[in-house]
């Protein structure tokens, strides 16, 4: 049993919604326990500045941000080295599923705001971003699902949260492209043996598969036949 009563391989309660914003072309909210992310997609649209455009494909731009009030001690607004790195790995996790070659000379902008942070913020951000891209009608090969696994008190557990994160020994976020069985985001910090690493990666992948089912369900509900909002 874990601090919050979960089993070792159990995700936190998840809530997901698509079409949560009026202005963005596509949007989604993804909540994993106390971590909440909202994503808004604009585009494909004209590229500014012009010199960034690519002749044969759309460029994908991702921005991960954390609200100042999202953490216990206020986090300074504006980009940090951490947020720039996370924006980059999120982009690299999404590119494989997008048909960017369908929209040459355009930009697809994905803005993600972490409103509340309790570990795995990059995973919640990615889950929201994938749903928002689908909601925007951007052609995709598949969704991308993300979650983390790690080690706390010597135990390998799924979806580390709260005290498990602050006192934990290892955190390993993964993003997964289910159709190709490909891991498109992989980071790790902490100490582990090779055998532990393999177990943790497999567990994180299993978590991603569960999240993938939730993402599909939310999209199907929104776009089921006869949905008047969408016609």
């Amino acid at each position: 049993m874990r601090i919050d009563g979960r089993k070792k391989d159990e995700l936190r309660p998840i809530e997901a919604k698509v079409g949560v914003l009026k202005n963005a072309n596509g949007s989604a909210m993804f909540r994993m326990g106390n971590t909440i992310a909202v994503a808004g997609v604009f585009g494909p649209r004209e590229v500014h500045p012009k010199h960034k455009e690519e002749a044969e494909r759309a460029i994908l731009r991702t921005e991960y941000r954390m609200s100042a009030f999202s953490t216990t001690s206020r986090s300074r607004p504006g980009p940090s080295r951490r947020s720039k790195e996370i924006s980059m790995v999120i982009r690299e996790a999404l590119v494989p599923v997008l048909f960017l070659e369908e929209f040459p000379k355009t930009a697809i902008d994905v803005h993600i705001e972490v409103l509340q942070a309790d570990a795995s913020t990059r995973c919640a951000a990615l889950n929201a971003a994938a749903l928002a891209l689908a909601d925007a009608g951007v052609q995709m090969r598949d969704l991308v699902a993300s979650c983390s696994a790690g080690k706390t008190n010597g135990e390998i557990v799924l979806d580390i949260a709260g005290k498990e994160d602050t006192d934990g020994e290892l955190d390993l976020p993964v993003a997964y492209y289910p159709h190709k069985k490909m891991i498109t985001l992989l980071q790790m910090d902490g100490i582990a043996t090779k055998e532990e690493m393999k177990k943790i990666i497999a567990l994180a992948k299993k978590g991603c598969e569960e999240i993938y089912e939730i993402q599909k369900k939310v999209l199907k509900e929104k776009y089921k036949e006869g949905d008047k909002d969408e016609q």
């Binding site: 494989p96 190709k180 980071q187 100490i191 497999a202």
Partner: peptide
């Protein structure tokens, strides 16, 4: 012991 990992680039790896 392993202490860090970072995937880069616009692709992925299988398990």
């Amino acid at each position: 012991r392993f202490c860090s990992m970072q995937k880069g680039g616009n692709g992925g790896f299988t398990e």
